[in-house]
Nucleic acid binder design. Structure first.
Lengths: 180, 180
DNA sequence: CTTACCATGTAAGGCGTTACATGATTCA
DNA sequence: TGAATCATGTAACGCCTTACATGGTAAG
């Protein structure tokens, strides 16, 4: 239904950590949330305006810089709205892998083509994994800070599923090669 | 960009197995593809019309039944289009888990709330897993049929990632409980 | 001096879901 | 006879991305 990407909650979430600009929010989405969430400027800026209109954030122009820079800050009402949403049960966890779709219809493609998709997938995962490992290493030193423990959970989730994927790639290859 | 859900390819894919109705396609999406893909009638029927207009499928009315029933069949051109798409590299594999989003902003929710989300997630996975195990058992007897080997790959993927999720749930709980 | 990055925003348009509308058939 | 399932379709509407538009600043 409505609000698939929950941009309002994502923004409130980041602002609950500290005040920042829309640009900075985008950067954090693309790093911290990158493997399980996404969002674009065309969604961030309008949502920031809506949130301000509804009193969930306040906007302040950074006069120190000549550059136009709008720093947003969460209000009490905003924090309350965030908490309200966080308490609610999760509505949707969605995995949509084109790779699996192509494998499912693999007969029309043939074994070689399927193996190629498996290799491509494997490679993409192998490229992503080091980033997550790095995140984990960095977080590891700061787990006494409560926030960091929660980030750690998501990173750990990523690392384990990715490792599972790699194991599956290996097995899938063996499985296919065991025939004919 | 365009065509996120690749309904055209999904339809061609199923029709490459055998002719069927739009209703039947929907059912198969909701079972065979269910844990990594989705699609609605509002998307299936219009796409079927487009495909027919473009000569990728043909439509035949089932006169045997009094009930209005349109059986679609893939054409050579349709099969070729499917193959063309299957050969192309995968564009997007997307995971979007609200659970992870809520965990990431977990500080505002607190440890108990986070643990609740982990339990909810665990439960939902535990509920899904038996279905996949059943699929695997059924497919296992027919792996000499090429198609079934490809279905098996996707099922195996699901089973392994789901088991990984359960392991993570356990670890996540232990991790959180090791603090404070 | 030019590339990369910081920074904000809008408009158009595609995509797909939800909700609605309709009706036959099967099974208990 | 009522519920569930089979079966097809459309319209409205929301959501989000892409592409465009603009310009400052830092670093090499």
């Amino acid at each position: 239904m409505a609000n698939e990407k929950r941009m309002d909650q994502v923004i409130l979430g980041f602002l609950s950590h500290e005040p920042m600009t829309g640009y900075e929010i985008k950067k954090r989405i693309d790093t911290s949330l990158h493997y399980f969430w996404s969002g674009s400027y065309g969604s961030i800026y309008p949502t920031l305006n809506d949130l301000e209109k509804n009193g969930l954030v306040t906007k302040a122009e950074d006069k120190a810089n000549a550059r136009k820079k709008l720093i947003y800050q969460i209000t009490d009402a905003g924090r309350e709205a965030l908490r309200e949403w966080l308490k609610m049960p999760v509505v949707k966890n969605e995995l949509r892998y084109e790779t699996l779709l192509k494998l499912f219809f693999g007969k029309e493609l043939g074994k070689e083509g399927v193996l190629q998709h498996i290799s491509d997938f494997e490679e993409s995962i192998k490229k992503e994994l080091p980033f997550l490992e790095m995140c984990k290493a960095q977080l590891n030193d700061f787990c006494d800070v409560e926030d960091h423990r929660y980030y750690m959970l998501t990173v750990q989730f990523g690392i384990e599923t990715y490792k599972g994927y790699l194991k599956w790639c290996e097995e899938a290859r063996n499985f296919l090669n065991s025939y004919e």
